[in-house]
Amino acid sequence: MFACDFGPATAQAAFLVAPEGFCRADQSAQDNLYMAQASSFDAECALAQHRALHRAMSEVLPTVCFAGDPATPDAVFPNNVFATAAGRYVVGRMRHPVRQREADRADIRNFLGGVLDYAEIDLSTQAHACELTGSLVIDRARGLGLCGLSERCDDQGARLMHEALGLRATLMFDLAPGEYHANVVLAVLAGRAAVVSPRGFADAGVAEAIADFYAPNAIVLSEAEHAAFAGNSIALSSDTVWMSARAEAALDPRNRQLLAAAGFGVRAVQLDAIEAGGGSLRCCIAEIF
């Protein structure tokens, strides 16, 4: 069941959005407990770290970076707004108005729909929050969705994303109180490993079941690893998992060994200035399949 024959396990390209005008978005902070206070934001440092991420990613896959806009301070996390599958792109419906503006980006839509000639599925104007690959962690090799429900995605939003991305099956589960996105507490790496933070699940049994599904390549995070955004990681190729330098520093030696046993080296990029915005490396990356 759920054979690894659905599609490529990792993306063929990616895009980013620069953190121009990067600052605290008070609307988003209402349900993002990871977001720092306004005094902790350093826009120039965030730009420099983001450029370093772009350079590093460009070494392993084509990576486009779109200009940022001070009117959309959270746009540095475009994976919540845009997602792709073979021949199509999906525009999500964000919970907060400050983020709903991001869905109107004509340049990104024209790139995906015009340059790449992908068909558009626009969920941004319907009523149900569905923050795409923030809420929905996808095992692309199996066509399997793992969707964390919160104020950022309800059950109907999960169903809409499942249909739009053409997935085989989607498991819906409640996130723990205070968690806003599944991709902070869960990652599936190239279809053959999972990084799981039980603290982020309302029902620890769901986290255990996901870990069992990917055993022996299940990396179960401690609370310290969770707090350092180790769950917000991504495989951009079959042999490397990417995470922030903060997450890499917190990684337990045993979990590093488990990643190595699963065939993954770890590559880290300093992103502490970006992490003030309540997300980390994976949140910055919109994958193109």
Rank of each mutant, 00 (worst) to 15 (best):
G200K: 03
P73Q: 03
R24M: 14
Y118D: 05
V184T: 15
A127T: 10
P73L: 02
S39H: 11
C65Y: 02
N183V: 07
M161Y: 00
D252G: 10
Y118M: 12
S197P: 15
C65L: 07
G7S: 13
L189M: 11
S237Y: 06
V17T: 06
I108P: 09
G143I: 00
H128Y: 05
Y34I: 00
E59W: 07
V81E: 06
A158L: 05
F82L: 12
A261S: 15
C153G: 01
V185I: 13
N232V: 01
L281M: 05
A86E: 14
N79K: 07
A273H: 01
A103M: 06
G21A: 13
S150F: 03
A141R: 02
S237W: 05
D174C: 04
A227W: 08
A169F: 09
V76F: 05
F173S: 03
V241E: 09
L236S: 08
G231Q: 04
G166S: 01
M94I: 09
G145K: 01
A106S: 15
L33P: 15
G21L: 11
D139S: 00
V220W: 13
A202I: 05
A286V: 04
C23W: 06
P19D: 13
N217D: 15
C147Q: 07
C153E: 02
L167Y: 01
I108H: 08
V196T: 09
F213R: 10
A36S: 15
Q270E: 15
A3F: 10
M1Y: 11
G113C: 01
D174K: 03
E44G: 09
L251N: 04
A29Y: 04
R101E: 15
I234K: 05
R105P: 14
A14D: 05
A85I: 10
G148R: 01
V137S: 11
G68P: 06
F2W: 07
G166D: 01
F173P: 04
A85M: 10
G166T: 01
S124C: 03
L165H: 02
G166I: 02
G21F: 11
E151V: 12
G68K: 02
G178Y: 04
A43S: 15
L236G: 07
C45F: 07
Q270M: 14
C153T: 03
L123K: 06
